[in-house]
Design a protein around this nucleic acid. Structure first.
Lengths: 125, 125
DNA sequence: CTGAATCCCTGCCGATACTG
DNA sequence: CAGTATCGGCAGGGATTCAG
């Protein structure tokens, strides 16, 4: 959502996207949130941060995740440049999924999310 | 979503939430994503990172944001411990919103999201 | 001024069934 | 094995209107 949150530690000196007054898909914050968006997304990324996985390995690791949503998530992550598909020719079909370099850079991002969550009491519903 | 993303830099040595196999509201990553969730949320936080704001100042800063969604967001952020409300007695009613200490700690989180987004090419639709 | 209540519409996600 | 097709329920969010 277009931030220049605190100081200018790492962003451009005066990025115009830091001053937008409405949600914009070009804002870096929204780009990242869009990549992480959707139920199960971060769990799939977590599995792949531990190493490459085939489709069935992902299904086994996340048993409650349906085929439809799993392939949706893998397609989304492929579109957003987080994940790469690798097809092995022959039979039976074998497809491996691996994080791209960009995908690996989500490690620190998830760590930041984890850290804030551990310092925060659960909201009282 | 329950991660222990890379190594154990800051999390507990063996937090069970790092191994959950389904989305869980107790996972620190999900707690944070829930706090940031929803359209306009991060823009509201950005405004408040720049300093306290009254309701009408927030409306002026984000003109395309409707009353309903603005009060929804402020209620959500209050529930999640990010924002505090301060009513000024008297007339006309004046309400100021300010980040809590926890809210200020979202600065580095948004910075991490910003940084990843700037290193990532926009997906080709 | 600062919201809450209502209505409607859209898009997500889960379940099930089917294909290369 | 690795997906796609289809359907339905439900929640998110925008516009408008009403209230303290």
């Amino acid at each position: 959502m277009t931030h220049r949150t605190v100081g200018h530690p790492a962003g451009l000196p005066d990025d115009p996207r830091a001053h937008v007054t409405a949600p914009s898909p070009e804002c870096p914050v929204e780009i990242t949130l869009a990549a992480l968006q959707g139920r199960w997304t971060t769990l799939v990324i977590r599995e792949l941060l531990r190493g490459d996985r085939s489709y069935s390995e992902l299904r086994a690791a996340l048993p409650a995740l349906s085929d439809k949503v799993l392939s949706d998530r893998l397609a989304q992550l492929t579109r957003t440049g987080v994940v790469e598909r690798h097809r092995r020719p022959g039979w039976p079909p074998r497809v491996h999924y691996a994080l791209t370099p960009n995908g690996h850079r989500l490690g620190p991002v998830l760590q930041a999310l984890w850290d804030w969550g551990t310092q925060t009491p659960l909201p009282v519903p």
